[in-house]
Design a protein around this nucleic acid. Structure first.
Length: 555
RNA sequence: UGCCCGAUAGUAUAAAGGUAGUACAACUGAUUUUGGUUCAGUUUGUCUAGGUUCGAAUCCUGGUCGGGCAACCA
């Protein structure tokens, strides 16, 4: 395998395992989302890791929905998760559900009871919490801890049969109440929930807990490397204990640090609050770092995969600079996006020496990064053009390479022009800029010998189409909104969305497609929003271009 | 202060006892019909104190700092 990067710690483990013949040299991973919310960029890291590992080592990856809590899980989420994983570019070997294993998990529990390693406990939730002890003091046994195997078997069977109400009884593993690891202090493994399950309906009224489902499901599927996030480290002894006691396939768990990003929050719970409290318009709001939000914003699957590759995999807590994500999408879109011109904040430019009714058609490359410019499109040109307000200055500084009286610029794909005059309204706003075309400077046919420092974009007034353009900024004003005391929502950036109702764009943008990225020259990358209609075009700004001038201005 | 995990430039991530490297960010400059792209370059780092060793980011010990763990959530 040709290699241009070093291995991450999980790849090192796998290569050692393959060498030593562990698991027969197989590599089988799984991506195990709970269908109770939408996937976000943090899940993308896990998806790329799990599927990437299997691809790299000739194995396979299952998609397994961890659906052991019927109260929060819904089919709607299952569908969105499947769509997102596929959109990211991955194919799972099998689509599975932990609920597929409910019968098997039940028999595992019976086996544990038979071995004297589990018991039915009638204590209340509060009593059980009290019996757990604290990290520095051991727990105390429940008075039901020493029930006979026969009684436990009968009670557990009754639990399954629906004899008891929610919370009346639980099944607990009998392990070690004095363990320094709280998870080993007789953890609850089955609870009663008379709830409708999105797949098994009303077949069950008892449901296994995560710890009694995940490792066993891994074992059933012969998962060799069960990769999860750091917070499950303390669960690992339990994971191993169940596998050992049940004498099932020895899957192994490995933990990596979850992804955090600057200027956002990453937990499903917090994302849900942003949706429910109306800070964003939904899970796929383009400001959300959900997969669906990023997709709507114009991020490509390739750029997200590249991002996940670049951030690496390790065990140390991290917070990735969002500028790396932006770099990845610019890098990808630069190669693929068609160039078009759009004027977001227009003022009128009049070419006073250009004939009133004349129209010329210029050619513009679709993408200068591609061979032959990626083909070209026709751009109509006339006496009156829309240009960007910020491309004219009444009193230009020496470093301003655009328009000001006496200055020359090139109109992209067209002529060099010289600025002669401008008009203002009573309020002092510039309303019109007057220029003259410098003849003999037509793009591709310029024999004038002139060279100008600036090139600006434009759209012909009579030919322009109108569009709504939505400009997005980071959703939070601070780098780490989730870290401090208090409510993270206080740090929401209230100016994260700026709507421009009437931008002018090239006429052929009417044929823009959802899912395709465009570069509005000098302004950034944009994509058609799903709310766009032929009558009202709507574009989202994916990301701005790098902007050396904006940096200069800040100085 | 019980147990567990971690600590390398601003942010991430390499270096498996032998020159601390790469990317993003920042800053210079060159090129450019996008102040984009591309190219060249610069700045910035091994938490701390001991120990082992010819030699320590790496091994050992103590400390410091950060994170996790006491849901009938996953």
């Amino acid at each position: 395998m040709s290699e241009d990067r070093s291995l991450n710690f999980i790849e090192e483990i796998i290569e050692e395992d393959i060498k030593s013949g562990k698991h027969g040299g197989n590599v089988i991973t799984r991506f195990p989302p709970e269908p109770n919310g939408y996937l976000h960029i943090g899940h993308a890291k896990s998806i790329c890791l799990n599927f990437g590992l299997a691809q790299r080592y000739g194995g396979k990856t299952n998609l397994r929905f961890d659906d052991t809590n019927p109260e929060t899980e819904e089919t709607e989420y299952v569908e969105s998760i499947k769509y997102d994983v596929q959109w990211l570019g991955f194919e799972w070997a099998e689509e599975l559900y932990t609920s597929d294993y409910f019968d098997k998990l039940y028999s595992f529990a019976v086996k544990l009871i038979e071995k004297g390693l589990a018991y039915v406990d009638d204590s209340t939730s509060e009593e059980i919490a009290g019996q757990k002890g604290t990290p520095t003091e051991p727990g105390v046994p429940s008075r039901y801890r020493d029930r006979s195997v026969e009684e436990n078997l009968r009670l557990f069977s009754d639990m399954k049969a629906g004899v008891y109400r929610d919370g009346e009884k639980v099944l607990r593993a009998k392990i070690d109440l004095a363990s320094p690891n709280m998870h080993m202090r007789d953890p609850i493994i089955y609870r009663i929930k008379h709830a409708h399950h999105h797949r098994t309906g009303d077949n069950w009224c008892i449901y296994p807990m995560y710890d009694f489902a995940h490792g066993q499901s891994d074992a059933i599927e012969k998962i060799t490397h069960s990769v999860c996030t750091l917070e499950f480290i303390p669960h690992r002894p339990l994971y191993d204990w169940f596998i050992e006691q049940l004498e099932i396939y020895p899957s192994k768990q490995y933990e990596f640090a979850r992804l955090n990003m600057t200027y956002t929050v990453m937990s499903k719970r917090k994302l849900l609050q942003l949706v429910n409290d109306g800070y964003v318009t939904g899970w796929d709001d383009p400001r959300m770092l959900t997969i669906s939000g990023l997709r709507r914003r114009g991020y490509t699957a390739a750029s997200i995969r590249e991002f996940c590759e670049r951030i690496g995999v390790a065990k140390r807590e991290n917070i990735i600079d969002v500028s790396l994500l932006e770099f990845c999408v610019r890098e990808d879109l630069n190669k693929r996006a068609w160039r078009r011109m759009a004027v977001l904040d227009p003022i009128r430019l009049v070419l006073t020496n250009y004939p009133e009714d004349q129209v010329e058609i210029f050619q513009g490359e679709n993408n200068p990064e591609e061979e032959n410019g990626g083909g070209s499109r026709e751009i109509p040109f006339s006496r009156e053009l829309w240009i960007e307000r910020e491309d004219f200055m009444e009193n230009p500084s020496r470093k301003f390479f655009r328009l000001g009286v006496g200055l020359m610029v090139r109109l992209k794909n067209a002529y060099i022009i010289k600025c002669d005059d401008f008009r203002k309204d009573e309020a002092g706003n510039i309303t019109e800029v007057h220029c003259t075309v410098v003849w003999g400077t037509r793009s591709g046919e310029d024999n004038s010998g002139l060279s100008v420092k600036g090139t600006i974009h434009w759209v012909s007034v009579p030919h322009a189409k109108t569009a709504e353009v939505r400009l997005y900024d980071r959703l939070f004003r601070v780098e780490d909104p989730g870290s401090g005391e208090g409510d993270f929502k206080e740090y929401v950036n209230t100016e994260s969305l700026q709507v421009i109702p009437g931008a002018y764009i090239e006429q052929d943008m009417a044929t823009a497609e959802v899912g395709k990225g465009y570069q509005f020259i000098r302004k950034g990358y944009f994509t058609l929003d799903k709310e766009s209609t032929p009558e009202k075009l709507v574009f989202n700004r994916t990301v701005t271009l790098r902007d050396a001038w904006a940096k200069e201005m800040k100085k």
